[in-house]
Amino acid sequence: MSGRIAPFRALLLVAALLLAACSRLDLAYRNLDLVIPWWISNYVSLDDGQKRWLEPRLEKHLSWHCRTQLPGYIAWLEQLDKLSQQPTLTATDLRGQFSQVRDALQDVAVEITPTVLGLAQSLSPQQMGELYVAMDERNAELRAEHVAPSVKDQVAARAQRMRERVEDWLGPLRPSQQARIDTWARSQGDYNRVWAENRDSWQKELRNTLYGRHGPDFPQRLTSLLQQPESHWAPAYRKAYPASEQALAQLLADLFNSADQRQRSALRERIGEMAEDLKGLDCYPR
């Protein structure tokens, strides 16, 4: 393991990455021991001792994830396959699927918390400065891409991203389905700003917590940030999030309900491929 490593969010996103639109989940999963350090390396350089300390813990987490979490992902995909065979879906059906993904992310957060605590307590002042600079740079990039453009341009980009994601599952969309996505994108308005402000708020609390990383309340504070991030949401985001999730669930239900046989077949094939990729994995022999 080499390079610069920042553990605070990487492993927490492993489950989400595996369920993203990836053509070879099995290949991606088998290389997580390389991908995670590379991803983390954008934030802070670790010394040799920290790398040696982290490496076996990362291997343990990956082994745990493979043995205990993959069966749940496969079951989730099998549930999704059953849903895809129904004549119609409701937003409630899909929000239930969202909830299961959140539960999986929570399991990962709980698993990695002790490692994050230990590594954070070992960071030097110089490493903390490096972490803050990297966070600021990343935030500036995200704001330039998602917040600085006009709301009209944000809506257009949001619609384009969603079209690409949906087409990865359903194949080419009909004009009426593209129009439904455009309507959803407009309904979200300046949600990007609310999201970015919430991200800033969470990171501000993270910085304050890390500043006191040698204090007696540090473990409790960082554990809360990792395992109960919603308790640190900004008020505007807390208010907007439920409506945004409902709108997304309704959009996906409407797109499914309007799908023709070709699109539904493509969806089932995509789900099946992902499930087979995960079923074919051998877990780390720990």
Rank of each mutant, 00 (worst) to 15 (best):
A253C: 13
A253F: 10
A253D: 15
D254W: 14
D254P: 10
D254G: 14
L255S: 11
L255M: 15
L255I: 15
F256E: 12
F256N: 14
N257Q: 11
N257D: 12
N257P: 12
N257V: 13
S258A: 15
S258L: 11
S258R: 15
S258T: 14
S258P: 11
S258I: 07
A259M: 04
A259D: 04
A259P: 03
A259N: 03
A259F: 03
A259V: 04
A259Y: 03
D260Y: 05
D260I: 08
D260N: 15
D260M: 04
D260K: 06
D260T: 05
D260H: 07
D260P: 01
D260G: 14
Q261A: 11
Q261M: 08
Q261D: 11
Q261H: 08
Q261W: 08
Q261C: 04
R262S: 13
R262Q: 09
R262K: 11
Q263E: 07
Q263Y: 04
R264H: 02
R264C: 00
R264L: 03
R264V: 02
S265G: 05
S265V: 02
S265Y: 00
A266K: 05
A266I: 04
A266E: 02
A266C: 00
A266D: 05
A266T: 06
A266S: 02
A266N: 05
L267G: 01
L267T: 00
R268L: 03
R268P: 00
R268D: 01
R268S: 04
R268I: 02
E269S: 06
E269G: 07
E269C: 04
E269I: 06
E269M: 06
E269R: 11
R270Y: 04
R270H: 07
R270G: 01
R270V: 00
R270F: 01
R270I: 01
I271P: 00
I271V: 03
I271F: 00
I271G: 01
G272D: 03
G272K: 01
G272F: 03
G272T: 02
G272S: 05
G272E: 00
E273L: 13
E273D: 13
E273G: 13
E273W: 11
M274D: 09
M274P: 03
M274Q: 13
M274A: 14
M274T: 10
A275T: 05
A275S: 15
A275H: 05
A275V: 08
A275P: 05
A275C: 08
E276H: 10
E276L: 13
D277Y: 08
D277E: 12
D277A: 10
D277R: 09
D277C: 07
L278E: 07
L278I: 07
L278C: 08
L278P: 07
K279Q: 10
K279G: 03
K279L: 14
G280A: 08
G280C: 10
G280Y: 08
G280I: 06
L281F: 09
L281I: 15
D282K: 13
D282V: 12
D282Q: 14
D282C: 09
D282H: 11
C283D: 06
C283Q: 06
C283N: 10
